[in-house]
Nucleic acid binder design. Structure first.
Lengths: 211, 211
DNA sequence: CATCATACTACATCATCATGTAACGTTACG
DNA sequence: CGTAACGTTACATGATGATGTAGTATGATG
């Protein structure tokens, strides 16, 4: 017989937790090895219950579910975590995905789908509803040509080289002009980016994907 | 009666294209308004056929499907594009998702799922298999605590402030030490990051997620 | 044609940075 | 208890950066 998949659930709503567990217990591939109403000392909880998958609520007393997720991925990165929450805002989805959640489901998701999602995650997939998936993907659909500050071609080139760590002198040599020309461009760049130093400019360029 | 969803398909394999169309035509919510064996002049094709959704192969003669996707998102960002391909490598998935694909399916996907995926996309969702979704998500799961260079707590603090654009003087004021102390820390940081200037350090810190 | 934006060069000046050397205190460790 | 790692301050010096002013040239725009 196939080895069962063990899961734990962290969820402060007793009714929801109990009813979900009751349903999942009907599935003969799944077995609950822990049920908690908060995520305190989540690492200890996992070490004692040894689950394959963690179902994690977000809004819980004492310890936020995303914080718990981060702790898990810090200490036990191989554990799969599926967020199970009422939130579907970009912030929470983004946080959870960045922190390494393998799934993100809403609580109104059918228990059938939740069971299926656990299987999906165990098979190396990610489990989320299409709408959540869309939100997740939107985060790294680069607004790529974010040339809002209206940098000219030369300025972009100079900024790029600056970001790559080149000094004025090196940039000048690279694009074959005098160093004063680089000063000129850099000043213009600073004005447009509203900064006053190279580190600021570099940080802004990278973060705003200007290069 | 509900308005039908119009789609076009760009796919160089005639057999696959024809058989998929034949199946999708059975679905009374879907109607094919264009069928092409390459993605040349994709904008023109779309303007004349006016689809809601584009099914796009990647490996096609003349014009790569991802290039076509980029053109579509550039000119007609509201059109939904679902990639339909044999490739499931990180590169292609990443490229497609970044370029704004609303879905990414493998050609061995059941036609039933493909039809369902079109509906999903029309309802504001993203359509992909769990395994593809996982690959997509992995791209922006930050390896967050990348403190490989072994920076001390103070050094991390100083680096963070430097990245935020503060001058030595400002950093010194912020953590209430003399400017020479900042010089000392910065030097250490440069040594550990193997850089020799603030812009380099900032770029490295952000890219390697040291802060 | 006049004007504007862009690009390049030059010169000047003060501020800031990069680097080295050196000394002192604290905490942790074998 | 000596040593090592870390944090702190100090001093010095040459290099680089930040900012301003100013002149020239070119292509585009109206």
């Amino acid at each position: 017989m196939r080895k069962k998949t063990c899961y734990i659930i962290c969820e402060d709503n007793n009714d929801y937790r109990e009813s979900l567990m009751a349903f999942l217990d009907e599935d003969d591939e799944l077995v609950c090895c822990g049920s908690f109403e908060n995520a305190e000392n989540i690492i200890n909880k996992i070490n004692t219950s040894q689950p394959d998958v963690v179902l994690m609520d977000i809004d819980m007393p004492v310890k936020n579910g995303i914080e718990a997720l981060k702790e898990i991925k810090q200490s036990l990165p191989e554990k799969e975590v599926i967020m199970l929450t009422v939130f579907e805002d970009r912030e929470n989805v983004f946080e959870a995905v960045c922190a390494g959640a393998s799934g993100y489901l809403l609580k109104n998701t059918s228990p059938v789908i939740i069971a299926e999602s656990i299987r999906v995650v165990m098979n190396g997939g990610a489990a989320m509803t299409p709408v959540i998936a869309r939100k997740a993907l939107q985060f790294f659909q680069k607004p790529l040509k974010n040339n809002a500050p209206g940098l000219t071609a030369q300025e972009q080139q100079v900024l790029k080289l600056l970001v790559n760590g080149l000094s004025y002198k090196m940039i000048a040599a690279k694009i074959d002009v005098v160093i004063d020309t680089i000063r000129y461009h850099i000043k213009k760049i600073y004005d447009k980016l509203h900064v006053h130093s190279a580190p600021e400019a570099v940080a802004k360029a990278i973060r705003d994907k200007l290069v």
